[in-house]
């Protein structure tokens, strides 16, 4: 059995986190937290600063994150964390061969965030998927509607309070003896 590597050995010291220090200088007050694992950084920022930070990351020659890799959300209801939702953005820079993860925390009753589709076109469908699965509204998105589920579906299935196997059939199904109770631990 290999020995467990402690987090301290893999965590790069704060002085070596280039992107974090750059963001803290350019956008004072926006960065609320960060960590870094073997040189790959994660920065937690305020929701109000998202659009300007993303534009800076794309346009500035020191960062030049050309590729928007992923956009997803985490529902932290079962971890008993507030704010409930955490948006996770992954960026990749080809010129500097670097990746960055950006996190934004959203409260349950106010899950709206600015859309960044005008910066990266690929974000369009990612934001639609986030809206479909979590119910997070992206302000400024040109066509925010469901992408994976059908329009008649009620609710947002990847939220933790949606019973995972509650079915909403579109056509009338034959009656089958249901012995299963909806919910995750049934």
């Amino acid at each position: 059995m290999s020995e467990e590597i402690s987090t301290q050995e893999t965590e790069t010291p704060p002085e070596a986190c280039e992107l974090t220090t750059m963001l803290e200088q350019e956008f004072p007050g926006a960065v609320t937290g960060f960590h870094s694992h073997r040189g790959d950084e994660t920065v937690i920022i305020e929701r109000s600063a998202l659009e300007s930070v993303c534009r800076f990351l794309r346009d500035d020659s020191r960062c030049s994150f050309e590729i928007m890799m992923d956009l997803t959300a985490v529902d932290r209801l079962e971890m008993n964390e507030t704010p409930r939702f955490e948006m996770v953005y992954h960026f990749k820079s080809l010129t500097h061969a670097r990746r960055l993860r950006l996190k934004v925390r959203l409260a349950e009753d106010d899950c709206k965030i600015a859309s960044i589709h005008h910066l990266w076109k690929a974000v369009d469908w990612y934001e639609r998927e986030c809206f479909d699965m979590f119910g997070i509204v992206f302000e400024g998105h040109p066509d925010l509607r469901r992408i994976l589920m059908y329009d008649e579906f009620e609710g947002h299935p990847l939220r933790k309070d949606y019973p995972i196997d509650k079915q909403q059939p579109l056509v009338e199904l034959k009656e089958v003896e249901e012995r299963h109770v909806y919910g995750r631990h049934a």
């Binding site: 994976l148 589920m149 299935p157 949606y162 995972i164 196997d165 509650k166 079915q167 909403q168 059939p169 056509v171 199904l173 034959k174 089958v176 299963h180």
Partner: peptide, 13 residues
Amino acid sequence: YQNYSVLQGIDRL
């Protein structure tokens, strides 16, 4: 797949 999106067997249909 026992979840919100998959029809649990086409013999229901």
